[in-house]
């Protein structure tokens, strides 16, 4: 993957990325000048304690938030210069999100939740294919209230990947799940990465997840402490929780 990354332009590059919340003495520096490159197609894990700035970075790269200073590029496009409509377009065309609390629409069943995205995407896969990818093809007509947490999260992943996103952002995707279910969800994410070539960026403080990653970025206090390239990727089934 790394050699490939040298030939294909990186998915994200960030320079001096800074995010400050609030002002004056109450100001919180969530990001303090982060420089970073994320190659296309990698499985990246952002690790660090809470408040270290990893979610903030994910939100900026995902087009949900804007940096206070510095630049963040998706391919050759400057995210920090985009207006609201451009960011919406960017999220619509390129980005998939998976959250800790799934954020499914309770009023839509599994397939309809996926179709929510396929209806507006440029080149989506079929909703049933996306659900098959996460192993839920037999529960298509079930509503969120009828599914377990792991199943709901898999629907969320199916929804996120159904548009064939360039990049998939996951914020604590296994945070609310037990280890068995968590493994199953991570398996889906590695499958997506390998089969579809989607760049996957996961924010977590479950260190075990790092065993799946191509690249592990350690965060502390709003800055990158260390970037580790992982040469011995494990399969999701094999990781120690």
């Amino acid at each position: 993957m790394t050699e490939q990354a040298l030939k294909i332009p990186p998915a994200f590059t960030a320079k001096g990325l800074t995010k400050v919340y609030g002002e004056g003495t109450a100001a919180v520096h969530a990001l303090r000048g982060v420089d970073l490159t994320i190659p296309t197609g990698e499985f990246v894990v952002l690790l660090g304690p809470s408040g270290s700035g990893k979610s903030t970075l994910l939100n900026i790269l995902g087009g949900l938030d804007r940096p206070s200073a510095g630049s963040a590029h998706f391919r050759d496009r400057d995210l920090s210069a985009m207006n609201d409509a451009d960011l919406t377009r960017y999220r619509r065309d390129h980005v998939g999100f998976v959250f800790q609390f799934y954020n499914l629409m309770p009023s839509l069943n599994a397939r309809e939740n996926v179709e929510l995205v396929t209806e507006i995407a440029r080149d989506p896969m079929k909703a049933s294919d996306a659900l098959a990818l996460v192993g839920l093809d037999r529960r298509e007509t079930h509503f969120p209230s009828e599914m377990s947490g792991g199943e709901q999260q898999r629907v969320a992943i199916a929804r996120a990947v159904a548009k064939r996103p360039t990049v998939l952002f996951c914020d604590e995707p296994t945070g609310a799940l037990d280890s068995t279910t968590g493994r199953a969800v991570l398996k889906v994410l590695t499958d997506v990465n390998e089969q579809l070539g989607t760049t996957v960026i996961i924010v977590t403080h479950a260190a075990a997840t790092a065993q799946l990653a191509d690249r592990v970025i350690h965060f502390a206090d709003g800055a990158i402490r260390e970037v580790v390239l992982n040469d011995t990727k494990l399969r999701a089934e094999d990781i120690e929780w």
């Binding site: 499914l104 309770p106 009023s107 069943n109 309809e112 929510l116 209806e119 509503f143 969120p144």
Partner: peptide, 27 residues
């Protein structure tokens, strides 16, 4: 965390009109 509100037992005109409705209308 609360279970999602249950829509499974609802009388479902939206499901019946599936062909004509996009997902937001269905919501």
């Amino acid at each position: 965390p609360p279970a999602p509100p249950d829509y499974s037992r609802a009388f479902d005109p939206a499901g019946a009109m599936k062909r004509w409705l996009d997902q937001p209308s269905r919501m």
